[in-house]
Amino acid sequence: MWAMSESVPLRCPACRREHLYAAPSYPCACGAPVTPHLDRRGTATAVTHRAWEEEWITVRCESCGHDGQWPRPELGCPCGTVLRVTVAGAVAEAVAGTVAGAEAPPGPAPEARPALRRPFQPVAIRTARDAVTATALYLRWLGYRDIRRADQRPPSGIGIAARGLLAQVDPTVRPASVRDVECLWLTAMTESSRCVYFSLAGYADDARGRADRLGVPLFVLDLTGTPRAVNDMADQLDASGTA
């Protein structure tokens, strides 16, 4: 279970109810917990619309200095309002594709992961956004860096990318189809990247067969946010990470 930061008072702008909120900590690649520093003087704002660029922030690990990308802290008020919490010193551009104002430099393979990995710490899935967060955490655990929104939007689901990898997250209640798998594979081929598919509802039988022939790792996300390997390629990716 992740550690929590110091609680800060929040007031809902809709119903004026008072809350105490503590931001969750996320595991850095070095193993240290990373917690966004909340602005105690900031004012919580109501989320009235969703924009991908506003969903993520960059937070620096105080142990190793790595800039990681994490979900922006939010709190649901019982009145139904979602509160966006002000973070001190965070850069709200992470998964939009840049870090510290610069494009991620092209490179071959992502940096290698440590030989020994800590156990994966998932985040429970309640929304489509949670499914993307769980996938991003898992890819980071595997050793991938510079996780961002994919340049091309997939026909279904949500595309995210890392250096050398293209991933598709399907948070719908229908099994992924053979067309979904083929489109991901073709897009990855044009970008000279590996690809991997994550689905909440699993895969049609022909989609699993085509993925095996194309070499596409398939994972099913359970509601705890833990990816479960569906085929041999996924087992190999889970075991080896970016190696």
Rank of each mutant, 00 (worst) to 15 (best):
C64K: 09
D39C: 15
A22F: 08
R72G: 10
Q69A: 14
C77R: 00
L75F: 08
S63A: 15
R72H: 13
L83T: 09
P36T: 02
E62G: 02
H19Y: 11
L38H: 09
T43W: 05
G76N: 03
H66S: 10
V34M: 06
G76L: 10
T45M: 10
H49T: 13
E54G: 00
G80F: 02
Y26F: 13
L83N: 03
H66V: 01
C79E: 00
G65L: 09
L75C: 11
R84H: 06
C77W: 01
G65A: 01
L20G: 15
R72Q: 06
T58P: 00
C77P: 02
A51W: 05
P71R: 02
R41Y: 15
Y21I: 08
A32G: 06
P27F: 07
A51C: 04
A29L: 15
C28S: 15
C61Q: 11
R40L: 12
A44G: 14
V82G: 00
R60I: 08
T86R: 04
A44Q: 10
G31N: 11
P73A: 10
D67V: 01
R60D: 07
H49E: 12
P36L: 08
Y21D: 04
P27M: 15
V59H: 03
V47E: 09
P73N: 02
A23T: 07
D67F: 10
A44I: 02
A22N: 01
E54N: 04
S25L: 01
L20S: 14
E74I: 07
L75M: 13
L75A: 13
V34D: 09
R50S: 04
T35K: 01
